[in-house]
Every structure is written in structure tokens, then in C-alpha cells.
Design a protein around this nucleic acid. Structure first.
Lengths: 145, 145
DNA sequence: TAAGATTGACGTTTCAATCTTG
DNA sequence: CAAGATTGAAACGTCAATCTTA
């Protein structure tokens, strides 16, 4: 049995959805103003940069990102068209594909980060005390899948 | 001057983005399973139902929703095609348009709500204490535009 | 000239189906 | 048949331009 949430809880839910949407719009806006690609490009590039080998199998990249398989496939088409990643065959599993970050991809990731960090600072960090951040983190952990 | 956010703050930001995305996917999933339209349809219908007149001018509806003007226009096309809203001329301002909710629109709003409420209960409310909700609400208010 | 709203063209996401290999 | 990944077609979102009236 699940109880009906209280008015306050519903209000907070609504606020969460809206505030998060506002925040993401502001951050995406800052990236756009700087002439940079959207956050989701950064997410992919970051996962690849984190790998010492600079590559991940498609399925592993997919597992890390909250993105449907076909969406990732199309996103990689665009990244590849911009030469930020390259797809390579997997030697011992002919079904598989590696996704490799290119040198250009690494440079774009590096250019995005300071702008993204600045946006996080302005729109998020600067509004909260470190106590707030701690509390929020605890709450988010309770909500996690 | 904006300071560089701490590692912890960045981590919490990343968690916020991801958790919120997970939550929205779960809620949208529940609506879809129930054969109901997406949340954004609900947002529009709710704003209209809240009006005693059952109508809002396009510009006022736009102001309430976090949606670009052209996106709202296209969304209303779909809602109108499904006969959930109707567009009407504004008598004393020939540039304007009213958006009216139809009886069918009211019924769809009423069918969505219990499913949506249940999703909020399951994926959000049931994971948090009322203290958590209070804290989260305070934090969200600090983040608001 | 600005406010209110829509549109055409184009880019992205989604759905179901597909193709290939294990 | 299942796993890994992609694709065609349709739905949806975005950009810049447009149309009409204030």
C-alpha cells in the first residue's frame, strides 16, 4: 500500500521538477552562449575521458548514461560527424563496437568544463550553504534507484 | 566573483541532475503504462482546470508554464487535435487567443491525477521523511529563480 | 515599433522493427 | 532464441522568420 502524499509533499515535488528544469535551462543557456554543445555531449565525452584507454564499448557507455540505446546511437552519429569520437570494431565480438574519444573530443571536453563549472557555481553552489549541500546530497541518496 | 565549487558540491549537482532524470522517467513510465499522455499535457490541463472560467489567454498560459512560445503553440495543436482544449478569439484584442479546456480535457485531467499522485507517492514521498521534505523544500526555495 | 501568436524548415527523440553475431 | 547495435518513419522540439493588430 502506498499512502496518498500530503499537500506539502506534492508541493515540494512540483517545486523540485520546476527548479530542476530552470537550472538545466540556465546551464544549457550558458553553454550555448559560449558556443558550446549541449550537456549530453559533455556527458559522453566525460565518460570516455575518464577511461585510461579513452574508449568504452557501446554497451558499457550505454550503461553509464541514462539514455535509451537508440538515442545514444544517434547521439554518437552526431559526435562522430564532428570527429569528437570514432567507432571501432571489437576484435573478439563482432556484434560489438568501441567508442573512442579523439584528440578533438578531448579538447572540446576541456573547453566545456570551465563553462559548465562556472554555471554550476552561479546557479547552484552560490545559492546554497555547505550544510544545504550536505542535506541535499543525503536526500538525493534516499531517492536514488 | 564566483568561487569554484567544491568536489562535494559538484558531486551533489551531478546527483541532482541524475536523480531527477530517473524520477521523471519513472513517472512518465507509469503514465505511459496506464495509457495516459505525458506530464506536459497534464501541466497544461491543470493550469486550465484551476481557472474558474476554464480558460486562459495564450500569453498567460505561457507565463505559467516553463515552455518556449512556439513549443506551447505546437503542444496546443496536439491537445486541440485530441479535443482536450479549444482555441477561441479574444473579443477586444484581435491578436490574442484564449485556450479553453473542453469537457473531454477535464476528464483526462481527472484520469491522470490519481496515477500521477500514486507515482509521486511511490517514487518520491515513500522514500523521504517529512523532515526530508521540509529540508528539500527550503533548499529548492533557495535555488528558485 | 512592439505584443501576441503561429509557421516552415530543420534537428532530435521515440517507437517498433531490423540486422548480425553469440 | 538472446545480446549488441542500428535504422526508417513518425512524433516532438527549436530556430529564425512571419503575420496581424496594438
Amino acid at each position: 500500500m502506498t499512502q496518498k502524499p500530503s499537500k506539502e509533499t506534492i508541493q515540494t515535488w512540483a517545486r523540485l521538477v520546476r527548479v530542476e528544469q530552470e537550472l538545466l535551462e540556465k546551464v544549457e543557456g550558458d553553454l550555448k552562449i559560449a558556443g558550446l554543445p549541449p550537456l549530453v555531449w559533455y556527458d559522453v565525452l566525460l565518460e570516455l575521458v575518464r577511461e585510461p584507454s579513452g574508449r568504452l564499448r557501446y554497451r558499457d557507455l550505454h550503461a553509464k548514461l541514462l539514455l535509451a540505446k537508440h538515442n545514444l546511437s544517434r547521439l554518437l552519429d552526431r559526435l562522430e560527424a564532428d570527429r569528437l569520437v570514432a567507432r571501432e570494431a571489437v576484435e573478439d565480438d563482432a556484434r560489438g563496437a568501441y567508442v573512442d574519444i579523439t584528440e578533438a573530443g578531448r579538447q572540446v571536453q576541456k573547453r566545456i568544463w570551465p563553462v559548465y563549472r562556472r554555471a554550476i557555481a552561479q546557479h547552484f553552489a552560490s545559492k546554497l550553504s555547505s550544510m544545504d549541500v550536505q542535506q541535499l546530497d543525503k536526500i538525493l541518496n534516499k531517492l536514488r534507484g
